[in-house]
Design a protein around this nucleic acid. Structure first.
Length: 490
RNA sequence: GCCCCCAUCGUCUAGCGGUCCAGGACGCCGCCCUUUCAAGGCGGUAGCACGGGUUCGAACCCCGUUGGGGGCACCA
């Protein structure tokens, strides 16, 4: 039987990195096995769901490079793929469950349940006591007469609930440890623990990979599946695999509150989709003993759910950055330029698309910039000096490099050396500056080039100096040298 | 309180009974290269939570302890 996995988020608020990891694993599992990846939107909570969040979810999935075979905007044989459009289905299945005796009407209020447990000397936290399982028609009529609206509960079987988890092996819950749970609210609204398995069954999902937080609800789903299979709605029970948490500082599950959990910040900083996917994959999975850099295609090739680790993984920004930097450096120059343009344009440094001159400059500087960046947004600070008329000199850099007569002397000598240079090329510039500053003034390279760098780039960190000067051109270079000289002279 | 999950360097992990006085990566610390910052090269630091078994032999299997995490809604 071919594998069918699914990703079924609810469109509420921001997109969580842990959620994306779950999507990635489901997708990779489907792709590795030649199966189908289904995308379904669980928008049954009108109060929290939003259209904007829905769109954003699709956008994030596509950004990461995860395509779906069935789902919103692509359709498929099991649609619709938004739960808000599937209401009648749930009502129909619920009715069948009641008719077949798997589900029943329950009138007890929480207070009544708690009171009964207390009276029996039990902990009220034990939950529902299955008291309404065998209500007579007369009793039900009496409750209705009081104006009560029953919820629908599933009658749990009296046997251990066991499954072989794809990542954890055998997991067992003792018979009687899970109370009959609510499928449909008193007002007729179907609940998540009901609609989720119903949709999975109808969409013929074979492998459910989801967060560890849902592990305790699996026994209920097993029971539901058995009932659904009995009434012909499901063809059987899927395999389950519970993925470990992605945690933040202090081993706590990365919360929605934690800014670190928002995928947007990584996109905005300029993580590459393949770099971020690579890091996400490392959260619970490894491709080989001595390797951790790989493409998404290589992940698909090697992915095996069975080898996913069961222990929680801490999200480590430093490592994520290191992985991304490696991918960034491996990018062909053309592609690097293409990806960096939106960031430079967004900062107002270049136009989009770049002018021919901007493009020329970018192509020259790209390989030099590429190897000293970890995320694309850094290009803005690193390359701004090439695309403006006058640089703004960073005060800290000025204080460090543009203070006193020594700096004035260096800047004057540099200007003099470059003013009448016959060929304004990188080797000629290097030669001229070394001659003038190192030999001429007897300065150590460090002292000689520090002030020049700040004059040119406005900061102490920049791409290689001579290349930068050539790209800048004689006029702007001399102008900046003079401007910096004035700063140094006080 | 009840139920469940997890346990190898600071972090992510490899290890699926002998080839492990435990391998890789990030981080950190040195050194080299060097016009800055990086990158790159070389080297270093650091770990099988504890206690019992099983076995000729355990990081690997079993039990317990401890520690960490999660779930117990007419939310998803």
């Amino acid at each position: 039987m071919t594998v069918r996995t699914r990703f079924c988020p609810s469109p509420t608020g921001m997109v969580h990195v842990g959620l994306m990891r779950t999507a990635l694993f489901n997708w990779a599992h489907a792709r590795h096995t030649g199966g189908t990846f289904v995308f379904r939107i669980e928008d049954t909570d009108a109060a929290r769901d939003s259209e904007e969040s829905y769109r954003h979810l699709l956008d994030c999935l596509r950004w990461l490079g995860l395509d779906w075979d069935e789902g919103p905007e692509v359709g498929g044989p099991h649609g619709p793929y938004r739960q808000s459009e599937r209401r009648e289905i749930y009502a129909d299945v619920a009715a069948k469950l009641v008719a077949s005796g798997h589900a029943y009407e329950s009138f007890s209020t929480n207070d009544e349940v708690a009171a009964r447990r207390m009276a029996a000397g039990q902990d009220p936290k034990l939950g529902y006591d299955n008291a309404d399982r065998h209500l007579t028609d007369a009793q039900k009529a009496a409750f209705r007469a009081e104006g009560r609206e029953p919820v629908l509960r599933l009658a749990m079987p009296d046997e251990d609930l066991v499954w072989t988890d794809l990542v954890r092996g055998e997991v067992r819950f003792a018979a009687g440890s899970v109370p009959d749970f609510v499928l449909v609210r008193g007002n007729g609204a179907p609940l998540y623990p009901f609609v989720n398995p119903v949709d999975d069954a109808l969409m013929e999902i074979t492998d459910v990979l989801r967060g560890e937080d849902l592990l305790p609800s699996t026994p209920r789903q097993l029971a539901l599946y058995a009932a659904l299979t009995d009434i012909g709605v499901a063809k059987g029970t899927p395999r389950f695999g519970h993925l470990p948490y992605v945690t933040g500082e202090g081993n706590k599950k990365l919360s929605k509150r934690d800014p670190q959990s928002n995928l947007d910040i990584y996109r905005e900083r300029g993580f590459l989709p393949e770099g971020f996917a690579n890091y996400l994959a490392l959260l619970g999975w490894s491709i080989a003993e001595d390797r951790d850099i790989f493409s998404t295609a290589e992940m698909v090739e090697a992915f095996d759910v069975t080898r996913v680790s069961a222990n929680p993984a801490r999200f480590d920004l430093k490592k994520a950055e290191a992985i991304n930097a490696t991918h960034l450096r491996a990018l062909p120059v053309e592609e690097f330029v293409e990806r960096v343009v939106p960031f430079l344009a967004g900062a107002g440094l270049i136009s989009e698309p770049p002018t021919p001159e901007q493009d020329r400059v970018l192509r020259v500087i790209a390989p030099l910039a590429q190897e000293r960046m970890i995320v694309l947004s850094e290009a803005v600070g690193l390359l701004a000096f090439l695309f403006v008329e006058d640089v703004e000199i960073d005060p800290a850099a000025a204080e460090k490099q543009l203070a006193g007569p020594e700096a004035v002397e260096v800047l004057d000598a540099a200007a003099a050396a470059l003013r009448d240079l016959p060929e304004f090329t990188t080797p000629a510039i290097e030669e001229a500056l070394k001659t003038a500053l190192v030999e001429g003034l007897g300065r150590k390279p460090r002292q000689a080039f520090g002030p020049v760098r700040v004059a040119i780039g406005g900061r102490t960190v920049s791409p290689p100096l001579y290349e930068s000067i050539e790209l800048l051109g004689r006029e702007r270079t001399l102008h900046r040298l003079t401007a910096a000289r004035d700063v140094a002279a006080g």
